[in-house]
Amino acid sequence: MSTSILRLVWIYPDLLSTYGDRGNLLVLSHRAEARQIMTESIMVRSDQVVPREADIYLIGGGEDGPQSLAAQKLIADGAVTDAAARDKVVFSVCAGYQIMGRSFIAGDRQHAGLGLLDITSDRGPTRAVGELAGDVHPQLGLPTLTGFENHGGRTHIGQESAPLVPQVSHGIGNDETSEGAWRGKVIGTYLHGPALARNPQLADLLLSWAVGRPVDQLGQLDDTWSQQLRQERLAALA
């Protein structure tokens, strides 16, 4: 960690904060502090400079106009790119996920992304709306991913990144085959819900990366209610 306090940065909530994505920040803060890991939550508006000394950076979803503006500002700011180069954790959702890639389509134009993930995004033939689920890439050691998707984009993964979910069992995800992408400590997903409330083990993985300790050394929490939520959603798909 950059300091004795875990610093969580919520990027551009005035531009990209749809479908309860701020919940990801709240989940990380709660799960850290329940383990006696003190946190500082920093919300950075689009007219502010993104802190360079932080531990986890989060960015959510939004519409085309705010998405393209956010990408331009983040490229000019450089803090997230620098943070990823220093092995800090970046968790991105939907429009924010596309921004982490090499390019994306917004407003019928192609825009440059940050290039932190080897992905490109364009438009799909239909809008992907509904529940999504699938088994997570085995290297991450996580249970089935579950969440809600609502996006018109399709994302294509290059050789320098891996899918978060190699094969979806329900939903569209990137391209009706895979969902999300990751490289190093940068993870992107189309899932709302918010994603970390639906997938607490994923939240713990991000925390473990940030504090430099294995997940099994973070300490156990009572996940009765989150597991009940997961089971209800997965049962509905079955």
Rank of each mutant, 00 (worst) to 15 (best):
E160G: 03
R86F: 00
T39M: 01
A79V: 13
P194E: 03
A203S: 08
Y97T: 11
I56C: 07
G180Y: 02
H30N: 13
E176P: 00
D135K: 15
Q201V: 12
Q110Y: 06
I59T: 08
R86D: 14
E232D: 10
R52D: 04
F91R: 03
D87N: 15
W182G: 00
L25V: 15
L16M: 12
Q167P: 00
R123K: 15
P214Q: 08
E176F: 15
D135W: 11
G65Q: 14
G124M: 09
D21Y: 02
Q98W: 11
R45K: 05
Q167E: 06
G158T: 06
R230W: 04
W209M: 08
D135N: 14
D122E: 14
I187E: 11
R109F: 03
L229V: 15
G193L: 12
L234C: 15
D82N: 13
G134M: 03
E63W: 04
L191I: 08
H192M: 01
P143C: 10
G147H: 05
R22F: 09
I75E: 08
G153T: 13
V165I: 02
D14G: 03
G130P: 00
I172W: 15
S2N: 14
G212C: 10
M100Q: 13
G152P: 13
Y97A: 08
G62I: 14
D21W: 00
R31Y: 10
D122L: 02
V215H: 02
A238Q: 12
G130W: 01
G78H: 07
F104A: 10
I42W: 06
R154E: 04
A112R: 04
A162T: 10
V136G: 04
S2A: 15
G101Y: 09
L58G: 02
F148H: 03
D47K: 01
W182V: 01
V129G: 00
D47Q: 07
A85E: 14
I119A: 08
M100N: 04
D122Q: 12
E63G: 13
S103T: 11
I37G: 15
A32T: 02
L26W: 03
N24Y: 09
P66L: 06
R154C: 11
S2G: 03
S103M: 05
Y190G: 02
I172D: 14
G23Q: 09
P143T: 07
V129Y: 05
E232L: 09
Q48M: 15
E179I: 02
H137P: 04
E53D: 15
P166W: 10
V89I: 03
L229N: 12
T120G: 10
R35F: 06
L202F: 02
K88G: 06
